[in-house]
Amino acid sequence: MSSGLDAQRLLIFREIARAGSLASAARSLGWTQPAVSQHLRHLERQAGTPLVLRRPRGVQLTEAGQTLLRHAEAIATRLRLAADELDALVRLSAGTVRLAAFPSAGATVVPAAMGLLADRHPGLDVRLREAEPPQALALLAAGEVDLAVTFAHPAPRPDAASGPGAALAPEPETAGASDLVRMVVGEDPLMLVLPRSHPCAEPADVPLPLGELAGEKWVGGCERCTANLLAVCAGAGFVPDIRHGSDDYVLTQALIARGLAVGLLPRMALDAALDPGVAVRPTAGLRPRVLYVSHHRDADRVPAVRGAVRALLDAMAAPV
């Protein structure tokens, strides 16, 4: 067996496997069938074993052929990524950036970032999918999106500062794949939302301790948000009476506006849509949820992805 395999012949072999026959592969490549057959024979000599079995209606991969095909597919993928990266280096506007973002980000900072990208790089194709953080990270790990905008509620730690000092510090993604990284891009404070007629609705700019609402009915949110509500209320010394559950911040506010409950919503959700029937007050002693942008470890070398991250950072920093 040769010390190395010819990369071009590996790609020809991949086309034979995909096409199912030498004749079909030759047509796809624009070559003659004898030329394709010759390359296959050379590759089999290099491999030291047959890679295909000739059948009346095509070819069947041997076990060695199936093994080699996996590597040929990986080489083809890397070559395609290399071509995309080179093209992006030459013409940033030729690239495509696919984003996944949770709903309130998708209604606020992400459209602002997309607008910035449209102004800076008019030909860049930017596509958005709405997805909660676990689904967004799954899409990213599967290669279906290039960037995932997510959030996480910090574990209650009264002694920890939550200022913006570390807002741009990168850290490894721990939610699954080892080749993903995430960057902290901002914070989203949690706000108490009450009916306008509630005795605690004013003063709007003064933080309200959670304990003041211990006897109220509450609206819970998504699974993570409800878990956070239970945790912060436990820290305030009570168990909230959660009567309703919705991850739709418009519905949540509609229930609150009609005096049916109170709730805890992130500022970003209120920026997206604010019901005139609710009052909003800051909370005392609660840390904001943390906002992240995640991507594959090498993706920040792609100018289109790097430009999208820059636009997201600029949109996060812009005043509402």
Rank of each mutant, 00 (worst) to 15 (best):
L286T: 13
E130W: 00
F102T: 01
W31M: 03
P133R: 05
G186S: 01
P195W: 08
A261R: 01
I75W: 07
A167D: 12
P282Q: 02
A236Q: 07
D6S: 15
L51G: 14
L229P: 03
R14W: 11
T252K: 04
E15K: 15
P319Y: 03
H39I: 09
R55I: 00
T150C: 10
G30H: 06
L5V: 08
G165V: 03
H39T: 03
G285N: 05
I256R: 10
P103E: 09
R91A: 14
D146S: 06
T62H: 10
A167M: 12
G259V: 10
A88N: 13
R41K: 14
A279I: 04
F238K: 10
L79Q: 08
T62P: 02
Q38C: 00
L180W: 06
R80N: 05
Q135S: 07
V309I: 15
L230A: 12
G263R: 03
L208Q: 07
S28R: 13
L89M: 14
R27A: 15
P34M: 06
S2K: 12
R98Q: 14
R224I: 02
V278Q: 05
M1P: 08
D6E: 14
E63A: 15
R287E: 14
T252N: 04
L140V: 05
V262Q: 02
R98I: 13
D275K: 02
R224A: 14
G215L: 07
D87A: 15
G65T: 05
C225T: 11
G220K: 00
A82C: 02
G48E: 11
A315P: 06
R41P: 05
K217R: 15
L69T: 07
P240K: 10
A279R: 07
E15Q: 15
W31G: 00
T62E: 07
L68M: 11
G58D: 11
R120W: 11
H39W: 08
P189Y: 04
L140A: 04
R78H: 09
R120Q: 13
L265S: 02
P195T: 07
T32A: 13
P319D: 04
L194G: 05
D179E: 13
R196V: 12
P56R: 06
A315M: 02
Q135V: 05
V126R: 07
H296M: 00
D248V: 02
L140P: 00
